[in-house]
Design a protein around this nucleic acid. Sequence first.
DNA 1: CTGTATCCACACTGATACTG
DNA 2: CAGTATCAGTGTGGATACAG
Lengths: 128, 128
Amino acid sequence: MREPLPADMFDELCPSSLNPIRFGDKWAGLVIRCLEGGPRRFSELRVPLSRVTPKVLTRSLRSLERDGLIKRTVYAEATPHVEYELTPTGRSMLEPMAIACTWAEQHWDEMLDARESYDNAASLDQAG
Amino acid sequence: MREPLPADMFDELCPSSLNPIRFGDKWAGLVIRCLEGGPRRFSELRVPLSRVTPKVLTRSLRSLERDGLIKRTVYAEATPHVEYELTPTGRSMLEPMAIACTWAEQHWDEMLDARESYDNAASLDQAG
DNA sequence: CTGTATCCACACTGATACTG
DNA sequence: CAGTATCAGTGTGGATACAG
């Protein structure tokens, strides 16, 4: 046990952008979950993502589109609108993400407690 | 199908820092995987994480310690050293992370392809 | 050995206002 | 309706040097 860690352990596997537990930008996870139930229009996404400004939401959507995780379709009709939907690749991400969500929900409380303890200890260090 | 998305869908579940697929900072995932095999010293971690400056690695380690995912132990001996190891909470994260890693490995190529297509299309738009 | 200090660059986010 | 433009704040990461 405790063999040395190879220096190139993650060189190929993990370019800096491929930390798999740190996928996408701040809102990517929520965007994907919002599209879980089927195609959504931009204005529909803005409801659950009301804290996200349109500029930021647009960028997040474009980034996911760029990576082939969602498909953007423009309907140039009398009342023009745009629909976003998960691609098969994007849909394949739902399961690992749900697992990560479950983990986060189960451990969120203890992480908050740990933070509080850590911060309190730091305060005491400063004081004393 | 296609019911409206509730506006408060993620208010409680996902404060901005609790996007579960975007855990920790840039290097958190790799740090955790480096600790999978047991306790490691700071200098040992620096080998596989050679691209990370000590300042950034320290910050990442402190952040994980703050959240109770790793434990930091100082040995104040003749040759002082520090060991980091996963807590039970930290270890519980290995499985969801491994699943996310598997997904990323399986879909990394197609995501790169999608990016290339997307960028090429954008270039053509500019040109023509 | 295990970090800190300093300076810098830039990406990300956000608020507000505006447009085809 | 579906975005863009602009400006600004902040954090996050990186290079380099230094310290207990």
